[in-house]
C-alpha cells in the first residue's frame, strides 16, 4: 500500500493531530512513514502544510513529488486549493467547508467551492457541524481524518488506535468523543464516493 497525503490548513487549526493519528495507525500496521511539519514563522496564522507518506515499501523523500499525491486533506476550503499542484490527476480533494477568514481579501466562498468541484474526486463536508453533533466543534480535525480514512488503506481499528495514542492521556471520554467524530466524518464522506 502507499498513501501520499498533503495536509493543509491555517496555523493553529490542528493538522498535526491528523498527521499524528494516521502516523500512529501506520506504525501500528508496521508500515513505513515520513511526516514533514512546519514550525517557526509560518505557524503564526499563515497557510500551513504538512506532508504525510505511508507505505509498505521504504520511503525515500520527505517531500511528496508534484503531481503524485493521493489526496489533499484540508481543514479550510481555500487552503485545499493552494496545493493542487501536488495532486495526481485522479487524486482526492477532501476539505472542510467552513472558511477560516483572517485576511481581508478572502475570495467569494462560492468561487472557492466551484474551483474545488472542478476536480471530480472531491469531498466537501461541514466538519464543524458534524463534530458538534457527536462531540465538540474542536474535533473538526478528527472529522476530516475520518473523511480521509475512506481513502487510506489502513484498517479502521488501527486508525482508532492512532487516535487513542494521541488522546489517551486525556482520558477515555475525550478519546471516545474524538473517535466518534472520526467515525462521523468517515460516514459523511461516503456519499461522495
Amino acid at each position: 500500500m502507499k498513501s501520499d497525503i498533503i495536509l493543509a490548513g491555517v496555523g493553529g487549526q490542528g493538522i498535526i493531530s491528523i498527521a499524528a493519528a494516521i502516523g500512529g495507525a501506520a506504525l501500528h500496521e508496521n508500515l513505513h512513514m515520513k511526516q514533514a511539519e512546519v514550525h517557526g514563522m509560518s505557524q503564526r496564522g499563515g497557510a500551513v502544510q504538512s506532508t504525510l507518506r505511508v507505505s509498505s515499501k521504504p520511503i525515500a523523500s520527505d517531500l511528496i513529488a508534484y503531481g503524485s499525491a493521493d489526496m489533499i486533506v484540508s481543514l479550510e476550503p481555500m487552503e485545499s486549493l493552494r496545493y493542487l499542484s501536488y495532486l495526481k490527476p485522479d487524486g482526492w480533494v477532501i476539505t472542510n467547508a467552513v472558511p477560516f477568514v483572517n485576511i481581508t481579501d478572502y475570495p467569494e466562498l462560492e468561487d472557492v467551492y466551484a474551483e474545488i468541484k472542478k476536480r471530480s474526486n472531491h469531498v466537501i463536508i461541514d466538519a464543524e457541524e458534524i463534530a458538534g453533533q457527536v462531540a465538540t466543534k474542536r474535533a473538526a480535525n478528527m472529522v476530516m481524518l475520518g473523511a480521509a480514512s475512506n481513502f487510506i488503506d489502513i484498517p479502521l481499528e488501527s486508525i482508532k488506535e492512532g487516535i487513542r495514542q494521541i488522546f489517551g492521556r486525556k482520558g477515555e471520554e475525550i478519546t471516545n468523543s474524538n473517535i466518534d467524530a472520526m467515525l462521523a466524518g468517515r460516514e459523511a464522506a461516503q456519499k461522495f464516493l
Binding site: S42, D105, V112
Partner: peptide, 14 residues
C-alpha cells in the same frame, strides 16, 4: 509548476 488557482488569496503569517 501548475499555477495556484487565481481564486486563492495569500495568507501570510501574522
Amino acid at each position: 509548476l501548475d499555477p495556484i488557482p487565481s481564486t486563492v488569496a495569500n495568507r501570510l503569517p501574522a
